[in-house]
Design a protein around this nucleic acid. Structure first.
Lengths: 200, 200
DNA sequence: AATTGACCGAAATGGAAAATCAGTCATAAC
DNA sequence: GTTATGACTGATTTTCCATTTCGGTCAATT
């Protein structure tokens, strides 16, 4: 088997183990066993566990980013693009599961490396949103706002609706999530009937 | 000294200790010492530590609720009331500090009782918001939405702006928080061109 | 009758012994 | 000669268990 194949095999095994058991609970012996190589072989391709993890994480983040970018169509509106990206990402099982496992690990054990990984993902998402928001601002598709704050709020709203809410009530479906993102973010709660009212 | 005074003295001492050291780190000996009573005396008024804590927590929650209710003026709009309640609560040091300490404790040590206490507070806040949102809906002040979801989103948005955001960037000031709650919740991000009024 | 603090057992803490794991390297396989 | 391997090593983690701490009681005291 070629060196390239071996490397891929190790990456596949490691990715599987990280999404199944998290960062802390995957051992290098474990990865070697799944990949059907001796443990030493891993170290001919990756200098340590951290680097192996980082490569998997970076690949996952990059794939999500590319997927998102592939869904954006400059002919469409900001919110149309937002929703098609959201849909695509929600369907995207593979990478998703790694990040869900890492979230669990942070909650339950507080593994530092898992926390870092999620922070990196968050930064990439925020940067991506900021960029899209800035573009939408330029093209006067959305109202005046600081893209950094807007990106942050959008991200938090998304997490609140998809993940936090289910700890309080029945989880929301995809359509409901779309509906509420549109309601809160795009349209606003204030009743158009009552407009214009006094701002401070 | 009367039994009533003694009881109050114990409550005051316990409240002080809970907000200073959290639930786990306040001992009954500690409370007795601060209150200047024998430890046994505490147990003539409260059957155990849990009950003592609950009484303090319930009082704090009730006070916050009453404060909020006192700020609501049915002549004013939903959002006007929302902002005056928010301002009042942000100024409300006393109870605030207990809840901040409990939040820390949940983060750092994960004390179950502290988590429960904060969950109770959250429930009361959500119920209160749901009630106000339902009222606003009835009076056609806000657009159609599920009060439970809307309350949840408003709460999360508030936490995101006041507490979460400062872990990513410079914390937002009171006016900025108002501004963004108005922008995201009330008015919506979608292009002002399509709206009959100007954004800030 | 009310108050107290020494006392009790359960639970938390700390630290030492045992186990586990990331990473190395001498040997084996080719 | 080159690459792959797994037994080995020291650092870290986990697992005990001895000791301490703390919530709660109650016999003695006021």
């Amino acid at each position: 088997m070629s060196a390239v194949d071996r490397r891929k095999q190790i990456l596949r095994a490691a990715a599987q183990s990280f999404t199944l058991f998290g960062y802390k609970a995957t051992t290098m012996d474990q990865v070697a066993k799944i990949a059907n190589v001796g443990k030493g072989t891993i170290y001919t391709f990756f200098s340590n566990k951290e680097e192996l993890f980082d490569e998997i994480l970076n690949t996952a983040i990059l794939e999500m980013k590319r997927l998102a970018e592939s869904k954006v169509d400059r002919e469409k509106t900001f919110f149309e693009n937002l929703f098609s990206v959201l849909d695509a990402l929600l369907e995207f099982r593979g990478e998703h599961e790694l990040f869900i496992k890492l979230s669990q690990e942070v909650r339950d054990v507080g593994t530092l490396k898992a926390r870092d990984g999620l922070a990196r993902l968050e930064r990439v998402i925020l940067e991506y949103l900021e960029k899209e928001i800035a573009y939408a601002l330029d093209h006067e598709e959305i109202g005046t706002c600081d893209p950094q704050v807007a990106a942050f709020v959008m991200f938090k709203l998304y997490i609140a609706l998809t993940s936090d809410y289910k700890h309080v009530r029945e989880p929301l479906g995809k359509e409901e999530i779309h509906h509420y993102i549109r309601l809160f973010l795009a349209d606003g709660l204030a009743n158009p009937e009552c407009r214009p009212y006094q701002h401070t």
